[in-house]
């Protein structure tokens, strides 16, 4: 089954190799991996999606924590969360058929971010299935899609900070107001 890990890692050379190497050793393919700066200076946040058995998840999380540069790991599992992916799609479009693509973009609430006489770029944000949907429609016309660039999934739990993340960051526990979803999240972690 698909699993989504969210991790805070030190922003320094080689860290991504260490994370990726852990999955390589287990012969697990990484479906998507998104990394960028986080709200904390010096820490990057990554979202990693992979196919793994339920039993492997505990060990992967524990093994990620063993990496010296990994500060926190969250297994999103089935917890309420917001997941988004960004896609840039370059399509062949002449002045004659542009209007049709504009309409499509409108339906999918995507934006046109570049426009030339032969092509245009569609920018779209959404859940994976929505992006797949747009791509499918665009593919109906052979040879129309010139390039696709997808960011991979980014995931964030709904509600307040997960307490373990806050703890790992050294914020006083008192400052944490655990609302229902955070409690739910903690319960997930115990499993």
């Amino acid at each position: 089954m698909l699993h989504t890990f969210v991790a805070y890692v030190e922003d320094r050379p080689g860290v991504l190799t260490r994370v990726a190497s852990l999955f390589r050793r287990l012969n697990i393919n990484i479906n998507s991996l998104t990394v960028g700066r986080s709200e904390r200076p010096g820490l990057s946040r990554l979202t990693l999606v992979c196919e793994a058995s339920a039993e492997a998840v505990h060990r992967i999380r524990a093994s990620l924590f063993k990496l010296e540069n990994v500060v926190d790991v969250d297994d999103i599992a089935q917890a309420p969360s917001v997941t988004r992916e960004l896609a840039l799609i370059k399509v062949a479009a002449s002045p004659r058929n542009r209007a049709q693509i504009f309409d499509l973009a409108e339906v999918f609430r995507a934006r046109i971010v570049d426009l030339t006489s032969e092509s245009l770029i569609i920018e779209m944000t959404g859940v994976e299935s929505k992006i797949e949907g747009l791509i499918e429609i665009l593919r109906e016309d052979d040879g129309r899609i010139l390039e696709i660039c997808r960011s991979g999934k980014m995931t964030m739990r709904r509600g307040h900070h997960v307490s373990s993340v806050v703890r790992a960051m050294g914020v006083a526990e008192a400052a944490v107001e655990e609302d229902e979803s955070a409690v739910e999240g903690a319960a997930d972690e115990v499993q």
Binding site: H58, R59, A62, S63, K66
Partner: peptide, 8 residues
């Protein structure tokens, strides 16, 4: 002492 060994 190593959590990754549990249930391995």
């Amino acid at each position: 002492v190593d959590p990754s060994e549990i249930n391995k």
